[in-house]
Amino acid sequence: MVTVLIRWTWLRAGLHNGWWLVTSVYLVVDAGLSPAQLVLIGAAQSGFALVCEVPAGVVADTISRKWSLVISQVLMGTAMVTTGLVDSFPALLATQVLWGISWTFASGSDVAWITDELDQPDRITAVLARAARAELTGAATGLIVLGLLAWATCRDLTIVIAGVAMLSLALYVALRFTEHHFVPVRTARWSGSWTIFRRGISLVRRSRAIRLIFAATFLVNGAWSVGRLFQIQLIDLGLPTDPDPTIWFTGLGVAGLLVGALTLRVAGHRIGGTHARNDYALAATAGVLGTLLLAFARDPVAGAIAVVLISGIVKPLTQVIGTVWVNARTTADIRATTHSFLAQLKYLGEITCGLTIATIARLTTLPLALTACALLFAATAVLMHQRADRGAGRTGIHT
């Protein structure tokens, strides 16, 4: 079952990351969206996902983690296909919102599924770290394959092809994922769902460590608005237009993912251990340095180095540490719901901070908007030096 998870993670990462590479260029070059519109799309996407996240997590905890993932694949593939068929801002906004909603049925459901099906608590941290590395290597493969396909054909066609492939991945989940240890709520589902929701709230209220990682997730994902500004900043810095920009962004994306896989390989034994909090703070500090370098770079080479630093260290480390941190402090009956709470803080950070970054980008300059992102990374680093609950040591993650 671990192999099934790893293969699915690798395939999904390849498709959605390759799709996003081509889509990110499509939004700027073909659709001609402005920096403010790009960030506003992210904020709107996060807003709808925020509303749907906990209900989707409760569905996974009451009905099925496996079928929640199937729903996610279908919605995701549909959103990806339709993105390549439109080029107006309102239509693209709608497709990206649907894409955001699709993730709510997957966030936490995959972790909850493998944790319960494996039923070996001593192995789960290593499995999640391995899945994270597979996600990065799969993403690198997707960037190369779909990036080259977009260069050889056209961007909108590549976007549609990736979406169709993602739709077909729903069949893989339906046929290969088992669900032997999950017991669905068969009676009084509405009241049972409400009980699960309240248990999740109660857990968060009792655990200072979970509240700490929730706050850090809010800040670091608000700072990740920088990820939507990579392309336009590098183009402004003079990124060559020959060959096609897609090729340049493919190379940068692959470099960042390979650095991320190496980072997780080196830090793998520390992710669920006593250094998790310090590693999270160091990753946020790297975000400060990388974002400031990108903001005030004089040429595309310096900007490219900054992009690799941010995408290769900051994002993979903070995501994996946050997931393992929460997973170690929850129970099987509310696992997907608790991970949904974590995802809600991610979306809330993207909405509130993203709107602020969009306003700064629209009223001032792009370097100042990037500087604001760096300040959010700095706040995250400071926060993670705070002490969490003493019970953290019992889970293997000292805070």
Rank of each mutant, 00 (worst) to 15 (best):
I351V: 15
R390T: 11
A381W: 03
A276Q: 04
Y280H: 12
A378T: 11
A328L: 04
A283D: 07
T359F: 13
T359S: 12
V314Y: 01
Y280E: 11
R390F: 07
L258A: 09
G290S: 10
A336Y: 01
H385C: 12
V288K: 02
S340Q: 09
A374G: 12
I271F: 08
L258S: 05
I334T: 14
T338V: 13
R335H: 09
A295H: 13
M384F: 15
A358L: 04
M384G: 03
R387P: 06
T356Y: 13
A336C: 10
I310E: 01
G251Y: 00
I313T: 06
A261F: 07
T371F: 10
T364A: 13
H269I: 10
T331M: 02
A284Q: 08
L293S: 13
V308F: 00
G268H: 02
W325T: 00
G251P: 09
V259L: 12
V288P: 04
L342F: 08
F296E: 15
V326Q: 00
R265I: 09
G253Q: 00
R298Q: 12
P300N: 14
A388D: 05
I357G: 06
I351R: 08
A369S: 15
G393C: 05
P300Y: 14
I360D: 04
I334C: 07
L309F: 04
T365Y: 08
I351M: 13
R298H: 15
L376C: 10
A304H: 03
V324Y: 00
D333Y: 08
A361S: 14
T263H: 03
I357A: 09
G303L: 04
I334K: 08
G322Q: 04
